[in-house]
Simulated assay, not measured.
Amino acid sequence: MTVHFHEEDLPQGVLAPGPVAVDTETMGLMPGRDRLCLVQISDGGPDQHLVRFAPDSDFAAPNLKAVLADPARLKIYHFARFDLASIERYLGVEAGPVYCTKIASRLVRTYTDRHGLKELCREMLGQELSKQQQSSDWGAPEISEAQRDYAASDVRYLHALKEAFDVRLAREGRTAMAQACFDFLPMRARIDLAGWPDIDIFAHG
């Protein structure tokens, strides 16, 4: 298991074919305000790749963009809505098609209100994640080893979680419902970026 750290772009050809797990680290929780600092990506193998962007980055990243925009590659996220918005805002691509483990969790783990990645990995995979670096400075000149390990862990288990959720979604008869939600997520992220992040535009009144 190796964490590979790259500046400004993903090297060509480092990912195996097929679905990729994707996550982002930003300076805050508002994609229109808080810049993208790091993109984490994994092909489901033992290695994870981190791509760091400098404060003055032009976010060119042709290799990373090609992977993220590839319609033949499924992208697996946890809370895709946020990551999709950050990627579209700074990298200018729609990073789909989408699978979101948080949406899947909300649809089948209705016995709890705890849908964080840490809880999912503990219950469904028997893996303990540390969230100590979650609120650290991702725009710092140097990214610490602890930060790198934390960032890599956010994509390390997403393929396995997808497999587990696929079984539960089928068991509960909610596979089609989940897929419809996943298909809508790029537009939900675009609505957030357009200025309606906290307003339910479908609500009456």
Rank of each mutant, 00 (worst) to 15 (best):
L29Y: 03
D47C: 09
D83N: 02
I103R: 13
H6F: 14
Q132P: 00
A164G: 06
R188P: 00
T24Q: 00
A104E: 14
A104F: 08
R188T: 10
D198G: 14
A21Y: 01
E123C: 09
P11A: 02
A60C: 13
A54C: 04
D9T: 06
A180I: 02
M1C: 07
S105N: 13
L129F: 08
D43K: 08
H4T: 06
A152D: 09
H159M: 07
T101Y: 04
E142W: 11
R35C: 04
D34K: 02
V39K: 02
V39Q: 02
L185R: 04
F182L: 10
I191Q: 14
D47K: 05
Y157L: 03
V98E: 03
A151D: 08
A16H: 07
E94Q: 07
A21R: 01
K75N: 09
S105V: 11
R33F: 06
K102C: 07
R168A: 15
D83E: 10
L169S: 12
L125I: 01
R33K: 14
A104C: 15
G18V: 08
I199W: 10
D34Y: 09
L161I: 12
E7Q: 15
A170T: 14
P197C: 03
P71R: 11
D113F: 12
W196S: 14
L120R: 03
T101N: 12
V14D: 04
A95E: 09
L64W: 11
L91I: 08
V51T: 10
P46M: 00
D198K: 15
V20Q: 02
E123F: 09
D9V: 05
R174C: 15
L29V: 06
M124I: 15
L10R: 04
C100W: 00
R33H: 10
G28R: 05
L38A: 11
H6S: 10
A152Y: 00
F5Y: 12
S57L: 07
E142A: 15
Q179A: 14
M124N: 11
L117C: 11
R89Y: 01
V14N: 05
A164V: 11
F82N: 10
L91Y: 06
A54Y: 01
I41K: 07
D58E: 13
Q12N: 13
G92E: 08
D137Q: 05
R109Q: 14
Q12L: 13
C37N: 12
D198C: 11
M187C: 07
H49F: 12
Q147W: 07
A85I: 00
